[in-house]
C-alpha cells in the first residue's frame, strides 16, 4: 500500500437523526504523524474514526488522500488498518491466520505473506502463541494480535479506537510504550482515539480535542497542556479548579473568594466580562500569608497529598502538596498569576 503525503479531512460531519455526532472536522494529517483524538465519551471521537475508516458514511464534508477523494470508497478499498476497542479478532482463526487475513485479502503471494505474517507476530512477541485461537489468549495478548493484524498490511494509516481501555493499569502502561515504539520503528501514520488525557499527551505528536462533536483545539501535547484554548479543554486537561469570576480593571475578581487575583488571560476578555479562572491542583501553592483555607479532605498519594480545601467564603479548591495535611488544618494558599489561566465564561 502506497503511503501519502497528507490526508485531509474537510468539514467532516456526521449526523445521527437530528443529533450532530461530529460537526465540521477539519484536519490535515501528515505522513508519519501520531494524532490523538481526545475527548470525553460522546464527544464524537469514535464517530470521526469510523468515518475515516469508512465504516460510517459522512453526512457532509469530504476526506482526501493527497489528490484522491476517499470518503466515497468502501472501507475495504481505503487501505487503512484498524484496531478495535474490543479487538474484533476472528474467533475461529488462529493468531497466525488472523494476522495473515489482510495479506490474503490483498492477494499477497503466499511465500511473502507467510514471511510478513511471521515478522508481524515476532514484532508483537507472540511467536509461541501463533497457533492458538484468540479465545486462548489474555487480553494483552489479544490486543497485540489486533495490532499485528492491522500493521502487517503496511497500511498508509492505522486507526486505533481506545485500544487500551480494556486492559488493566499495568498492562496499559506497557502497551502504551509498545505502541509508541512500533510507531517510531515503522513510521506508521496513526490516528488514535482515547478519552485518557495522559495517554494522549504521552503518545501523540498532535492532539485534537473534541467536545460535543466540535473541535476545541488542535495542537502539540505541550500547547494543549499548558495553553488550553478554552475552559472546556482546560477542564479536560486537568485544571480541576474552575473558579467563576469577573474581570475588573487589570485584575480578576473571583466571586466567592472575595479576593482579586491576577492571571493570564486566554482569549479576548473585556472589562466587566464574566470569566472562569482555571488552575491545576498542583499549581496551587501553600504559603503562609496567602488567603486562608480549611482542609476538608486529604488523600494520600505517596509522595503527595491531594487535598480538598474550603475558603472562608465556602469556595472549594483542590490542591496537591508534599506537605502533610490533615482535615481541619488551616493553611494559607496562593494562586500564582502565571499558572492561573482566565477564560471568557
Amino acid at each position: 500500500m502506497t503511503g501519502f503525503e497528507t490526508l485531509r479531512l474537510d468539514g467532516v460531519t456526521r449526523r445521527f437523526g437530528d443529533a450532530d455526532a461530529l460537526t465540521g472536522l477539519d484536519l490535515e494529517i501528515r505522513r508519519g504523524e501520531f494524532i490523538a483524538l481526545l475527548g470525553p465519551s460522546g464527544c464524537g471521537k469514535s464517530t470521526a474514526l469510523n468515518c475515516l475508516a469508512g465504516l460510517l458514511p459522512l453526512s457532509d464534508g469530504s476526506i482526501w488522500r493527497d489528490g484522491t477523494r476517499l470518503d466515497t470508497l468502501p472501507p475495504e478499498r481505503r487501505g487503512f488498518g484498524m484496531v478495535f476497542q474490543n479487538y474484533a479478532l476472528f474467533p475461529h482463526l488462529s493468531v497466525r491466520n488472523n494476522v495473515a487475513f489482510g495479506l490474503k485479502m490483498r492477494g499477497v503471494p503466499r511465500a511473502q505473506a507467510r514471511r510478513r505474517t511471521e515478522d508481524a507476530i515476532r514484532l508483537v512477541h507472540l511467536e509461541e502463541h501463533a497457533g492458538k485461537l484468540p479465545g486462548q489468549l489474555s487480553g494483552g495478548q489479544q490486543q497485540r494480535v489486533a495490532i499485528a493484524r492491522a500493521v502487517v498490511v503496511e497500511p498508509s494509516l492505522v486507526l486505533m479506537d481506545e485500544p487500551l481501555s480494556n486492559l488493566d493499569a499495568k498492562l496499559r502502561l506497557e502497551m502504551r510504550t509498545e505502541i509508541r515504539r512500533l510507531h517510531q520503528n515503522l513510521g506508521l501514520t496513526t490516528v488514535y482515539v482515547t478519552h485518557d488525557q495522559e495517554e494522549a499527551l504521552s503518545m501523540a505528536d498532535r492532539l485534537v480535542v473534541l467536545r460535543a462533536g466540535r473541535v476545541q483545539q488542535i495542537g502539540t501535547p505541550e500547547q494543549v497542556h499548558t495553553r488550553p484554548a478554552n475552559r472546556h479543554v482546560a477542564d479536560f486537561m486537568g485544571f480541576r479548579n474552575l473558579l467563576p469570576g469577573r474581570s475588573v480593571d487589570d485584575h480578576f475578581k473571583i466571586n466567592d473568594l472575595g479576593v482579586r487575583v491576577s492571571g493570564t488571560s486566554v482569549g479576548e476578555i473585556h472589562k466587566g466580562d464574566p470569566v472562569v479562572a482555571a488552575i491545576r491542583p498542583e499549581d496551587v501553592l501553600l504559603r503562609p500569608g496567602g488567603f486562608e483555607v480549611t482542609v476538608e479532605v486529604a488523600e494520600y498519594h505517596g509522595r503527595e497529598i491531594a487535598a480538598e480545601v474550603r475558603t472562608t467564603d465556602g469556595l472549594t479548591l483542590h490542591l496537591r502538596t508534599s506537605q502533610r495535611l490533615a482535615p481541619g488544618d488551616k493553611v494559607g494558599v496562593d494562586l500564582p498569576a502565571d499558572r492561573l489561566l482566565v477564560f471568557p465564561a
Binding site: E76, F80, G81, A88
Partner: peptide, 12 residues
C-alpha cells in the same frame, strides 16, 4: 465488529 474488522482488512 468482526465483519467491520474484515472490511478494514480489505475483504469485500
Amino acid at each position: 465488529s468482526l465483519e467491520r474488522a474484515a472490511a478494514t482488512l480489505g475483504a469485500g
